[in-house]
Computed example of a mutant assay.
Amino acid sequence: MVSSLPSGMRRVLPAPCWGWPSSCLHHGMRRKNVDPTAFRDLLANLELSSEEGSLPSPCVGICRVDTKTRFCEACFRTIDEIARWGGASDDDKRVIWQALRQRYEASLL
């Protein structure tokens, strides 16, 4: 049974459960598995020295933050880096990409 809301109110969906393992039991949804090749391929084709054009987002569509490292398991960004990406200058994005490359390489050890 669906109940109607009082006039002027709207239904708000619950926030996602960031950092849950492979499934969100609270919302009953199955999360996508992290594809390690997606970020690796994006990184391999990236040209950081190029001055023209905007740098692409490191996002590969799977947002899940590791509770120990505090990095996204798919793109290796911190929550702060994810939040400020849209307003970041190309120089700031270049610095973030360089950090991501180092984090990715460290994850392979």
Rank of each mutant, 00 (worst) to 15 (best):
D92Y: 04
C24E: 01
R64N: 03
L109Q: 13
A88K: 03
K68H: 14
W85D: 09
S22P: 10
G19P: 02
R30F: 02
I82Y: 12
Q98F: 08
R64V: 09
P56Q: 07
V12A: 08
I82M: 12
S49Y: 09
P21V: 15
Q102M: 11
T67S: 13
R10Y: 04
M1C: 11
D66T: 09
P16G: 02
R40G: 08
T67V: 15
A38F: 11
S54R: 03
R11E: 02
R10A: 05
R31P: 02
L55Y: 13
C17D: 00
E47N: 14
L55E: 00
D90H: 10
C72L: 05
L43M: 06
A38Y: 09
F76I: 11
A88H: 01
S57C: 12
A15K: 09
M9K: 14
G28C: 05
R84D: 10
C59L: 03
R30M: 05
M9P: 15
H27F: 01
Q102G: 10
L43A: 09
M1R: 10
D91Q: 09
A83C: 08
G86P: 08
G53I: 14
N45P: 02
R103K: 04
P6N: 09
P16C: 02
S50F: 06
F76V: 07
W97R: 01
F76W: 14
P14L: 01
A106T: 05
G86Q: 12
V60L: 00
I82E: 14
G61K: 07
G8I: 02
Y104N: 01
G53T: 11
A88P: 01
D91A: 11
P16H: 00
C59H: 03
R11W: 08
R70P: 03
T69V: 13
H26K: 14
M1Q: 08
L43C: 05
S22M: 14
E51M: 15
D92E: 14
A106Q: 09
S4E: 10
F39K: 00
R70A: 12
W20H: 13
C75D: 00
A88C: 07
V12Q: 05
A15I: 08
P14Y: 01
Q102A: 11
L108F: 04
L25E: 15
G28V: 00
T37N: 12
S54G: 15
V12T: 08
W20G: 07
G86L: 04
L109V: 04
G86A: 12
P36A: 07
W18E: 15
T37G: 11
L5K: 06
F71H: 03
P56S: 07
D91V: 07
A44H: 12
E73H: 13
P16Y: 00
L100H: 05
G86I: 06
G28T: 00
R103W: 08
E105M: 06
L13F: 07
S54A: 15
P58M: 02
I82F: 12
Q98D: 12
N33P: 15
E81I: 15
A74W: 01
G61A: 09
I79S: 03
F76D: 00
V95E: 00
